[in-house]
Design a protein around this nucleic acid. Structure first.
Lengths: 334, 334
DNA sequence: TTGTATGCGTTATCAG
DNA sequence: CTGATAACGCATACAA
């Protein structure tokens, strides 16, 4: 068991016959080293297997290069797609992602942020839950940047990225009516997260404007099984709806499966269905779900470029992205 | 813009009227501090918003608390489930996960390991690809522990966790035959990863032992679309197979969808299908796929407990877990 | 361009 | 139990 641990810049310096600062400069971009010295250092480093210690570097620079990703239900299609996009683009910009898995409580988000502070993360990106103001203030005061994705918070300081959920909901209401639907329903979970509630609100309001009522049904957390339960609730009513907007694709998949296999209904002939997120499964031929696409890559790009900018721009701290409607065959017409 | 950054133990010490060592001891488990001092420190820390700097602590202790997760295709159901389990259990044991997203090249795995070294990760867990021996040696020499999951490597040093892929394949071959199938096929991707090939090998061998041939078809990378393509290849043959074992559930989903919607076949009446991984979608009522469960939680538990043990046990460096057969309705009988 | 000296926030060692 | 001091590995201001 080798107790002698990692190679240090000191050792490289000795091997290369230069000072330790020369080594440091070689690995610091934008420092002035003569090509000759540089090469000597590089050779010695290669032989010794030297790698800059980012822990020590972060200590000096007050910049760890670490970005914390705070996310719950990471096994879920949308969340994992978002995680993929973020980690990818963070890496491309020279950062590294620290992933913290939370349960659905806000408490666990606070804990995660504390962890982010301990590792002196340059930034934290929150995909789930909403932390306490005291802790976010602490982060901001410590110079840690904060990004809230689909959290719809109005606090100052963090970058807030949201979608036009309400507008999207209105568009789908119109599409339903155009398809000849008159008995609208909304399938939601009981999670009550901002974006989910915005979709519900927008859908109900748009329907009202079109002179229609909406049956709203909520159940459990936001997953496939809940979609099945909500289908149970909606399709055993005296008057079945002829169109249902599901708050997420996962709910929609559960709903469609129950509608077809349990109630022998035909989609879109007897009932039209729409979802939100455009997870991979939405495009599978068993679903062919009309849905709104989460612009995950664009969200990631916005996030990373904001993090890269070292000047704080108070005006661009809130960005609202457009959710494109992806038309498939779960709604009649098109 | 607050340039004054994080609170240091020094400041806490001054506020509490004690030495910085007292502060350090308060936050070091197993150190001896009087309850009185301890409380003074805790109060001061709370007021000032102090958090131990893990970068500095890691520097001192030669133990960063960071574990690197190296994984490709993280948006995929199986991979994200594995990631969830690992991050969860790492957190529970006081570690924190650094997530590095690789593409499918071994080069990018090497790069990821370099990053792990730079951050002085205590360990790296490799879920995808296979790194060069020189770089893994470097990791091991530096005291970094390595875990290879489903990689089937024979190198000394890393913990290797694998499933009984070949045996599982044999079991499913038997199940097919018992269901009356005689024309067996195996659907694979061209990824050629060890576990995928082991399943193929085991299936072909078991079929041979039962006196049957297997049509093997491979295409693209391991995803839904490839499953569709392989279905195309298998179901346009003069003699269609009556049973197909797909190397992963994602392939199986694609295969089933194509078989049903494009070739109007009935499952399991006309063709029996099995998969591997037991991703969430396998249980959806559109698929009801008979498959083998990846014991993700057990894999994570094995990994974390091995990482927690500081004594190197040469004998337990390779563990083979059992993949349970989850019986659903994509195979006749049962 | 190069080397020297200093400090970053911790923890470990040792004397009290 | 407590406080002073020396590392840890690196980057940088400064002098050469």
């Amino acid at each position: 068991m080798s107790q002698k641990l990692f190679v240090s810049a000191q050792e490289v310096a000795e091997k290369a016959g230069v000072s330790r600062s020369a080594v440091s400069r070689t690995f610091t971009s934008g420092a002035s080293v003569s090509p000759k010295t540089r090469q000597k250092v590089l050779d010695a480093a290669e032989v010794l297997g030297y790698h800059v210690n980012h822990l020590a570097r972060g200590l000096m620079r007050n910049e760890s290069g670490i970005v914390c990703l705070i996310v719950s239900d990471i096994g879920t299609p949308y969340r994992s797609a978002m995680t993929r996009a973020l980690t990818q683009q963070l890496q491309n910009s020279g950062k590294v992602a620290m992933l913290i898995n939370t349960d659905r409580s806000d408490d666990s988000v606070d804990l995660a942020l504390r962890q982010a502070i301990r590792y002196r993360a340059d930034a934290s990106i929150i995909l789930s839950g909403l932390p306490d103001k005291s802790i976010t203030d602490l982060c901001l005061k410590n110079g840690q940047r904060l990004v809230l994705i689909n959290r719809d918070d109005d606090s100052e300081g963090p970058l807030k990225i949201n979608l036009d959920d309400e507008d999207a909901a209105a568009r789908i209401a119109t599409a339903f009516v155009r398809a000849g639907c008159r008995k609208l329903a909304f399938a939601n979970s009981q999670a009550g997260t901002p974006s989910l509630m915005a979709r519900e609100r927008g859908f109900v309001a748009a329907a009202k404007a079109l002179g229609l009522d909406v049956i709203v049904e909520r159940f459990g957390h936001t997953g496939y099984e809940s979609g099945r339960v909500v289908a149970q609730q909606l399709l055993t009513r005296k008057e079945r709806p002829d169109a249902v907007f599901c708050a997420t694709d996962l709910l929609a998949c559960g709903f469609m499966d129950a509608a077809r296999h349990q109630f022998s209904m035909s989609i879109p002939d007897q009932i039209c269905v729409a979802g939100f997120d455009d997870i991979e499964q939405a495009s599978w031929s068993s679903y062919q779900l009309t849905t709104f696409a989460q612009p995950v890559d664009m969200i990631a790009r916005e996030t990373v470029s904001w993090l890269a900018g070292d000047t704080v721009q108070p005006e661009s701290q809130s960005v609202c992205l457009h959710a494109d409607l992806v038309w498939r065959t779960s709604i009649r017409g098109g």
